[in-house]
Nucleic acid binder design. Structure first.
Length: 880
DNA sequence: TTAAACTGCAA
DNA sequence: TATTGCAGTTTAA
């Protein structure tokens, strides 16, 4: 396969070819007979080794999955029902499958399984895909198609599998790759992955799937206008400054002649710089499309005096007036602050976040992935990856052991591609996307500082708690293992039971003890979660639920905290803006957005070791009913607006009066809570009466919910004639159905708005949130209803976070923001600043935001909560 | 070794 | 026939 095309493509440059030209997976071609014998499918096929068919007048090679029954019989690809479906989509767009395209399958012979009645089509295995790849690679070499359409998971796997050695390409699902037109130097063609027609056909009656599938086909056809792809070699454009004098003079040049904009990138000894021993090993810098510089900073090849000189020069560049660009700017920001004691000035763009704003699909924002789908640059950090791995499971990697030339080259390419990516992204963004980009960039800048601030936590406390819990858990499991049930299990199975194994619990509860299962998991097997165990309610399951709870607290929370509390006595979670589908934030290491609060025990174990700084209080605010307010703003529903505009009104309480047939003053707090979380929210997010009724019914039985008068809710519902007796679920469901009808009659503008969003999505393939964030990819109706509320609600919090943070900096306040939980902002507050801070933040969050964002047409409200001086987060109370 | 499934915590 | 996240364990590939 070492033919001209491939050699030329290689000369034009891909990373893989640079390191080792012989390692093209696609070019590894073995003898065909050998492969076919190893696979063996041809022996059973009616049409073995099916030849590629079609005239290919428009230079399109279509790779589908494998011949099905019909194809195998007719000896022709895409002639079964899925093929006909595909033709019916192509014909109206002027494409004739047989005239304009070549057709083949990732596997040429029919794979099937024999059942008693018939032979059933099956998907090809990984091995079969790999062994059959040669046939189309040879064809590509000979016929040079300009476009390759990969239809379905098998084709995508066949074409790409083995070409990525990191996680940037391991997710080879059509959802991840569809809608792209990828220049590929190994075949000198455009590659367009999409769903297999059989997938679309299976969802023929789901108009959301079909609308997207048809759009993808139109996209693929539009791409036919493109000229052949061109490629560039980033290796030629990196200048590695291995000599100290050279590095110094380049930095001095930059200082004397600062550019308007530049990108930079660090290679470091780990992910967080806060513990002793961390270094910025090398730096790369790029201010033009032709050259990137990279040089060692705190690297063994220079001495410490030289480190100091280079750090001083680099610091001057970090604070110059130039616009700064980085892939994951929080990272470069935090390392600059911690290691170099310098906050970069004038952050302009985070390419990682911009990738997320341009396409909110999961795993889309990595620089390697973007470089591949945009420029066909493949796997360029291959030789560095082993050095970026953790050293002996510690927080340090092995980067200092990497050869300097490879380190600098890889580092330099990152800066080069980052700047190139920025220029493309800047052109691609709509005006509204630019708006949200600005918000996010400011947010990232502030979130970097918030990670710097950190959260005070007591390692001693968590160590002690860990030991205490460990004893309790050991004792609980000891008791469980000495139970009769455990002995029964051993007798039946001939081995000891593992109580933390769902599999073993299923055997014990449902096979051995013959108990009834209450519900199923996603994949349809019997569930053994806490709800099921609680319903079974025998001493064994009670004990197991208790043990599981403590195990969760110890393993998930205390474990993370102990790992993450650093030598300065703080934990410093990441708060990211490039993950959530809806443009929300996420948090990790540790995840600070799911620390227990409802369960009192779990709350105490986890929150009692989190403190304000010495002499301070933890102080924070929640937006009140923020998502309901956002829903009112964007749907402009007059009834909902009325509720939001009048603080004396309480829609959840009102809804509780209808659901539970009560007078307003007889609604208890818990009934209000379940009206809100069991009915209002689910309804707004497209749930329906049956699901709501079922959940409410179960909760009423389980929790023995009472009215404010202290009467059992179910008894009350029987009294007023909703139910005949305590097991008359149907009566309750009928009632909830009527409540739902009334609810949507009242808030009918919300329903209408949801319908408009769905119609927009079907037409354009995306929806745009009021803040400018776009949601695309496949979306269910529920997601379309939810995202435009969830996203902007968080964006309100982000606005407040940015402005509060900047205000505190301007004022030189001692108080700091330390965290954020979707609609909640947390400060480490000096008590002398408390009242001023509350006034300032409340004004920003409720007044200033409405001056800047005129789409907010209802009043926003916040409620404050806080701890006493030097008291832990566990002691936080409302209304301080 | 890695990925998927299951579970459980938050908003 | 409610959404978004992160992380732990077990199990299968």
């Amino acid at each position: 396969m070492n033919t001209k095309i491939f050699d030329e493509a290689r000369k034009k440059g891909t990373m893989r070819s640079f390191f080792n030209p012989d390692e093209f997976v696609l070019t590894k071609i073995q003898s065909e007979d050998k492969n076919c014998n190893q696979c063996g499918l041809f022996k059973f096929a009616k049409s073995p080794k099916m030849e590629i068919t079609g005239k290919g007048k428009k230079n399109i090679l279509i790779i589908a999955e494998a011949p099905g029954k019909t194809e195998d019989e007719k000896n022709k690809q895409l002639t079964g029902s899925a093929g006909e479906f595909f033709r019916s989509k192509l014909n109206p767009l002027g494409i004739d499958l047989d005239e304009d395209c070549w057709k083949t399958n990732a596997v040429r012979c029919r794979p099937f399984t024999e059942t008693a009645q018939s032979e059933k089509n099956r998907a090809p295995t990984k091995k079969e895909l790999q062994l059959c790849r040669n046939h189309y690679l040879k064809f590509i070499e000979k016929e040079k198609p300009k476009f390759i359409w990969l239809m379905g998971k098998s084709a995508i796997e066949s074409f790409y599998s083995g070409r990525f050695s990191d996680d940037s390409g391991t997710d080879l699902t059509p959802t991840r790759w569809r809608g792209l037109c990828i220049p590929d130097p190994t075949v000198n063609a455009w590659v367009i992955p999409m769903f297999h027609p059989s997938y679309a056909m299976r969802n023929e009656y789901d108009d959301l799937t079909i609308s997207q599938y048809e759009r993808d086909i139109r996209f693929a056809i539009q791409c036919l206008k493109k000229p052949l792809p061109t490629f560039f070699n980033p290796y030629d454009k990196v200048e590695c400054l291995t000599s100290f004098n050279h590095a110094r003079s380049v930095l001095q040049d930059i200082i004397h002649n600062p550019p308007e904009i530049f990108s930079f990138d660090y290679e470091t000894t780990g992910l967080k710089p806060f513990n002793k021993g961390h270094k910025i090993v090398s730096v790369s810098y790029c201010d033009s499309k032709d050259v990137a510089y990279s040089f060692p900073l705190q690297h063994i090849s220079f001495n410490k005096d030289q480190w100091q000189i280079l750090c001083n020069l680099w610091n001057q560049i970090l604070v110059n007036d130039a616009k700064k660009v980085a892939q994951n700017l929080k990272f470069e920001d935090v390392w600059s602050q911690q290691i170099l004691n310098t906050k970069p000035y004038n952050w302009h763009w985070c390419t990682m976040n911009a990738s997320h704003i341009l396409d909110n699909r999961a795993s889309f924002s990595g620089l390697k992935f973007q470089s591949f789908i945009r420029w066909g640059i493949e796997d360029y950090d291959k030789e560095m990856r082993s050095f970026i791995r953790s050293k002996n499971g510690s927080e340090f990697n092995m980067i200092e052991e990497a050869p300097l030339d490879k380190l600098l080259l890889y580092n330099g390419i990152d800066a080069l591609l980052t700047l190139k990516l920025y220029h493309e992204q800047r052109k691609e963004m709509s005006e509204n996307q630019l708006k949200v980009m600005t918000l996010f960039n400011q947010g990232l800048d502030a979130l970097a500082d918030i990670q710097m601030n950190g959260i005070c936590a007591s390692k001693e406390f968590y160590q002690q708690t860990n030991n205490e819990l460990e004893q309790k858990i050991i004792n609980l499991f000891k008791e469980l293992h000495s139970s009769d049930e455990a002995k029964l299990f051993k007798k039946e199975m001939g081995r000891d039971i593992n109580f933390t194994s769902d599999h073993d619990m299923r055997i014990l509860l449902f096979d051995i003890l013959k108990l009834k299962s209450e519900k199923t998991t996603d994949s349809g097997i019997k569930s053994v979660d806490a709800e099921v165990l609680n319903t079974i309610n025998i001493p064994l399951t009670k004990k197991l639920v208790a043990a599981n709870k403590l195990d969760k607290v110890k393993g998930t929370y205390i474990g993370q905290f102990l790992r993450e509390i650093d030598q300065t006595g703080k934990m410093r979670p990441f708060f990211d803006l490039h993950k959530a589908d809806t443009g929300r934030s996420s948090s990790s290491s540790p995840n600070w957005q799911n620390v227990p609060v409802r369960d009192e025990d779990a709350k105490k174990y986890t929150r009692s070791g989190i403190f304000p700084s010495k002499g301070n209080i933890i102080l924070g605010f929640d937006y009140k009913a923020l998502e309901v307010s956002i829903c009112a703003c964007i749907s402009q529903d007059p009834e909902l607006i009325k509720y939001c505009a009048d603080p004396t009104k309480d829609m959840h309480r009102d809804q509780a009066t209808e659901l539970f047939v009560l007078k307003k003053d007889n609604v208890s707090d818990s009934l209000r809570f379940y009206a809100k979380n069991g009915f209002v929210f689910p309804e707004i997010y497209n749930s329906y009466y049956k699901s709501c009724a079922r959940n409410l019914w179960e909760i009423m039985h389980k929790e023995n919910l009472k009215t404010k008068d202290g009467i059992d809710t179910i008894d009350h519902l029987i009294d007023v004639g909703v139910c005949g007796d305590r097991i008359d679920y149907q009566g309750f469901e009928d009632h909830v159905k009527k409540v739902e009808t009334k609810f949507w009659r009242r808030f009918n503008k919300v329903k209408q708005w949801q319908d408009r969003m769905i119609a927009f999505y079907m037409k354009y393939g995306y929806i745009e949130l009021v803040t400018g964030f776009r949601c695309q990819g496949y979306m269910s109706r529920n997601k379309i209803a939810n995202s435009p509320i969830q996203g902007p609600a968080f964006h309100c919090l982000l606005y407040s976070l940015i402005h509060c943070h900047n205000k505190l900096l301007d004022l030189g306040a001692k108080s700091k923001i330390i965290g954020q939980i979707h609609d909640n902002l947390v400060f480490d507050c000096d008590p002398s600043e408390k009242e001023d801070l509350k006034e300032m933040a409340t004004k920003i969050a409720t007044v200033q935001i409405r001056e800047d964002w005129d789409w907010i047409i209802v009043p926003l409200m916040v409620s404050w909560e806080g701890t006493l001086q030097d008291s832990s987060w566990f002691t936080q109370i409302k209304g301080v």
